[in-house]
Each structure stands twice: as C-alpha cells, then as structure tokens.
C-alpha cells in the first residue's frame, strides 16, 4: 500500500486548521496581486521617479491611495514593486540555501562515517560565525545589491538546512528498504534519489516554508536598519527605513505602515502554513 502523499495529508490537516487554510488563501492572493500588479504598474508608471518634497504628503492631500513619500514617490505603486523585490530575495535565498544545504546534508547523512564527521565539523565551525554581522560587513564592502544579498545569505544559511536534512537522512540510512536496495546492487546515487529523497520530502517542505518566512524577516530587518538593500532598490525593508526616524514614525504613518502590515501579514500566513506542514511531517502532532 502506498502511504498518503504529503499534499493529501496537508489538505486533510487544513480542514482542522482554519488559520493555515486562511493563511494559504490569503498568501496566494497576495502573491498573485504582487506578481501581476508589479509588472503592470512598472509598465504604466515610472515608480522610481523622484520629485523631491521636503515632507511626505498624506493620502488625503495627495489624492492617492497611500500618499507620497518625501521623494514624491507614489507609495501605493512603490509597495507592489518593493514587495515583489522582497519576495524575489526571500525566495532566492530560501531556494539556493536549501539546494546547497540539502545536498550536503543528505550526502553526509547517507554515507555517514568519515564523510559525515568531516561535514559535521565544518558545519559546526561555520555556524559559530555570527552570520548576520558578517553579511552586513560583506554587503558594505561589495555593494548592497540583490545578487550580493542572495549570495552572501546563501553561503551562511545553508548550514542549518544541511543539519536538518543530515539528521533526517541519518535516521533513514539503516532502515530495511535502504539496505534491501543496497543488497540488490543499486548504485548509491540512485538509492539516494529514488529511495531516500521521497522519505525526506515531508521534513524538507515544512522547513522550506518556515525558512521563507524567516528570510522575509531578515531582509526587512537588515534593510530597515540601512544595512541591507540601498534606497534605490525598493524593498519592504527599505520602505520601512523611515520609521527609524522619530518624526516619520510619529507623524507620517503612511510612509512605513503599509509595508509593515504587508510584511507581518505575509510572515503570519507563511508561518501558519509552514506549521501545518510541520505537523503533517510529524504524525504525533497531526490533527487530521
């Protein structure tokens, strides 16, 4: 008998977890709106066109939905483009760091022994480095671009992914189905891909989704402080930068509030979904 796939289990779980269901729907809507809206807006308007004002203009005074910032940019239009950039970044970091981490982790867990202990020493050492600080310094040296951001975050965050997948692979490596496959003379690579990976998908997907939320947060935090992306790369964190200025924080809410609400909403949705997925991967915690 085939065990039920993670997606079927997930759907079942959703019936018992309305938050996850709502999160999934809301996040899908947000994604659609952003990825359709951003190109459309970019096509019709020059979002980055600067028309300096000394102070931001409120929604009521400017006749636009979310007002203008102190550079005279339309906040509503900017929000779409910023959100798209932030999502690209978060997706990019999540994907590449997972790819690298999962590869190293699964190989290390599958082969075990010497390879495993060497890899574990490396990841141990690597994870002692305060990666956010190093990333901040590296971005400062090599420039605050989207590529650098994804690249540097990837080379420091794969470690966590590697450890997780290594533990999961280690738990599988001595099970009967793997041993049976080995006895049959199946090449190791085929065993890993055809036999082992399907059993790691549960853990991987849940983790992938939760990491996505965390990466949205990292971008926001770094950019907000002025140590992430520069002002000429609109992102949700960059849009919130003004909130660190007490005057803006108190009097010009429309400059920072929309991106703040969007970030929190997206992270909340993604976390609900990720948590439901995590419960699916651990039978004891399932509700469905």
């Amino acid at each position: 008998m085939k065990p039920p796939s993670i997606f079927k289990l997930f759907l079942k779980e959703l019936k018992h977890d309305y938050f996850a269901l709502a999160g999934l729907i809301l996040f899908s809507i947000i994604l659609l709106a952003i990825f359709i809206g951003a190109p459309v807006i970019n096509y019709f308007y020059d979002v980055m066109r600067v028309d300096p004002k000394i102070l931001p203009v409120s929604p009521a005074d400017s006749g636009t939905l979310l007002g203008l910032d102190s550079l005279g940019r339309n906040q509503f239009h900017l929000l779409f483009v910023a959100a798209r950039n932030s999502l690209y970044l978060a997706f990019g970091v999540t994907f590449f760091s997972f790819l690298l981490g999962a590869t190293v982790g699964v190989i290390s867990g599958f082969y075990g022994g010497k390879i495993d202990s060497i890899v574990m020493r490396i990841t141990d050492t690597w994870s002692m480095i305060p990666f956010l600080m190093v990333v901040i310094v590296l971005l400062n040296i090599f420039g605050k671009t989207v590529f650098n951001f994804i690249f540097f975050l990837t080379i420091f965050t794969w470690v966590t992914r590697a450890r997780l997948l290594r533990a999961a692979a280690l738990a599988q490596r001595n099970l009967d189905y793997i041993n049976a496959s080995k006895t049959l003379g199946t090449p190791n690579l085929i065993i890993i891909i055809r036999e082992m990976l399907p059993n790691l998908v549960d853990v991987a997907i849940a983790n992938l989704v939760l990491t996505l939320a965390a990466n949205i947060g990292i971008e926001t935090g770094l950019s907000l402080l002025g140590f992430g992306l520069g002002w000429n790369y609109p992102s949700l964190g960059v849009m919130m930068q003004n909130a660190t200025n007490p005057m803006y924080l108190q009097h010009f809410w429309w400059v920072w509030a929309p991106s703040l609400v969007l970030v929190v909403t997206m992270m909340l949705c993604v976390n609900f979904v990720g948590n439901a997925l995590q419960r699916v991967s651990d039978p004891k915690q399932r509700r469905g």
Binding site: F19, A213, G217, I218, T220, G221, L224, L225, M240, A243, T244, P246, L249, Q250, W256, L260, V263, V264, T265, M267, L268, N271, F272, N275
Partner: peptide, 21 residues
C-alpha cells in the same frame, strides 16, 4: 505566531511608537 511574524526590528518600532511616543 503573531510574535513569530514580527521581525525584531518591526516589533521594536511598534514598541517605541506605542509605549514611548
């Protein structure tokens, strides 16, 4: 979950806005 969805910085800003200002 709400706590988890707040990046540290965002929570900090809201705390300042509400409790301080």
């Amino acid at each position: 979950f709400v706590s988890l969805a707040m990046p540290t910085m965002v929570l900090g800003i809201l705390m300042i806005l509400f409790f301080s200002f």
